[in-house]
Amino acid sequence: MVMQILLGPQNPVPNLKQAVDRINSDGPVVVISAGWRDSEGEIDELRDITGRSLEDLKLYQRAEEVFSNEPALHELHRERQDKLRELQRLYRIRLAPTITAARKLMRTRAEPELLRLEQRAAITQLRALDAHHLRRIRGIHLNFNERRSALEVPSAQIQRDEVHSLVKNAGLILIPGGHVAVLLNRIRLFGLDQLLAQKPVIAWSAGAMAMSERIVLFHHAAPQGKRDAELLDAGLGIVRRRVLLPHAGSRLDWRNRRRMALFSRRFSPAACSTLDNGSMIQLDNGRVIASSGSSIVTRTGRKRVLAKT
């Protein structure tokens, strides 16, 4: 049994200590705070909360060092990131009319039998677009991995070996939130995907998102106007059939039931699970076994408290 725990944001009231106590591991505790970018490794507050000795893997800083020592790898990395950015732009061009049509159909009045099938077809198109986008992203990662394996990158290998050794010896891994794309990218760069699936992990906010199968970016109350949720990338796939939504209370427009219903149905059969301050979802080998303070978004756009399964 490998236990993972997902938490919501740790501000204002952290519940990390309860999660650490629940996993009850004696081994070394390592932290992956690469999502904090320039502030990576500033983990004194986590030490105070957990009361444990912690070691940060410093994946962000290690990556900078590797890139400076291995220009060919850096160039390959930059090329991939440019492609991903451009692909995301193209995806948005297709997403805008597709989701606008689905939203219009969700609020229009018509004969129920006719309307239901049109709504379903519009959501199917949306899901197809997301699935296509994910395939294209996976293709770009695959191409990167193939070309990377052909490179001689000795300093990257040294760093990778060090990181793997630390993770293998760890009794618990903590993955805080932060910049979700940077975090995921650095975890992948050091080949930790498979390793993390075999270790007890506590991850919160962006850390939890990175653990899931699909990473969905969302914010219904952005200052420059509402923006539709976007699929960013495949996650590590450790948490299955869940789209994880940190800060859901403040980022999602719960008063707009149609919008929330579309959100839920678009990512179905995965359950859209909220992670707010105080939330805790406990998993055994990627399956939810207990939860508190978390809800799922229903097909009708309501909140339903996530029951213990």
Binding site: N11, G177, V180, H219, Q224, R227, H247
Partner: peptide, 14 residues
């Protein structure tokens, strides 16, 4: 302020 200095809210989940 968010027009001249857009924040990282789309990508950052703390």
């Amino acid at each position: 302020l968010s027009w001249i200095f857009p924040g990282p809210l789309w990508m950052v989940y703390e």
